[in-house]
Computed example of a mutant assay.
Amino acid sequence: MECLATLDFVHKEQNLFITGSSSTGESYLTCALGHEACKRGFRTFYANAPKLLGALKVAKVKGTLETEFKKIERCQLLILDDLFLVPLDVKERPILLEIIEDRHERKSTIITSQYPSSNWCNKVGDPTIADAILDRIIHTAHAIELYGESMCKLRSKKN
């Protein structure tokens, strides 16, 4: 974590994915890294992935999708929290692919997921698109898998 906290991976335009069961701290760590990136002057965009993809589907219907893509593209660090919480639908797949493709080896992305990366292909749904997305995310990524009990459960035991 100390190495990641230097944000060297952002300078190197690499990705990071943090996986773990619900409430093991993946979102907390990601937000801490995003906060540090902001403090160091990196333009950072945080989004709950299912909400972002839903909003981008609406933008596509309205004809404003390219404008939204440009906002995301300008950021040096994109944080997609809770990606693959629900499987992608047929309209979300190409949107996610375009985001990942635009950033590949040019900008950094942090992804959190409750599912290990070995399950991501099933969550994308289409094997061809899944291969394209995962190829661009995983091969240049640092990976952290968190284990343990839910932080919420641990806090309730203390009370």
Rank of each mutant, 00 (worst) to 15 (best):
A5K: 14
T6S: 15
D8C: 03
D8N: 13
F9D: 12
V10H: 08
V10L: 05
V10I: 15
Q14N: 14
Q14C: 08
L16A: 05
I18K: 06
S21E: 11
S21G: 11
S22M: 00
T24Y: 02
T24P: 00
S27P: 07
S27N: 09
Y28W: 14
Y28L: 11
L29A: 02
T30I: 07
A32W: 06
L33E: 07
E36Q: 14
E36M: 15
E36V: 03
A37C: 03
C38Q: 11
K39I: 02
R40P: 01
G41N: 09
F42N: 13
R43E: 13
N48Y: 06
N48R: 10
L52F: 02
G54T: 14
L56C: 05
L56N: 02
L56Y: 08
L56R: 12
K57G: 05
K60V: 10
V61C: 00
G63R: 10
G63Y: 07
L65Y: 12
L65M: 12
L65F: 04
E66G: 00
E68Q: 15
E73C: 01
E73F: 07
C75Q: 08
L77V: 05
I79M: 05
L80W: 07
D81L: 06
L85Q: 11
L85G: 01
V86A: 06
P87T: 05
L88D: 03
D89W: 05
D89C: 01
K91N: 13
R93K: 14
R93M: 10
R93H: 00
L96S: 11
L97V: 05
E98P: 02
E101F: 10
E101M: 13
E101N: 15
H104L: 03
E105D: 14
R106T: 03
I110D: 12
I111R: 07
S113R: 04
S113W: 01
Q114K: 09
Y115Q: 08
P116Y: 03
S117E: 07
S118L: 06
N119W: 00
C121Y: 00
N122H: 11
K123S: 06
K123W: 01
K123F: 01
V124I: 15
I129A: 08
D131C: 02
A132Q: 13
L134E: 05
H139C: 03
H139Q: 08
H139F: 04
A141G: 02
A141L: 03
A143R: 12
A143C: 07
E145I: 06
L146H: 09
E149K: 12
E149C: 01
M151A: 04
M151T: 09
L154S: 09
R155F: 04
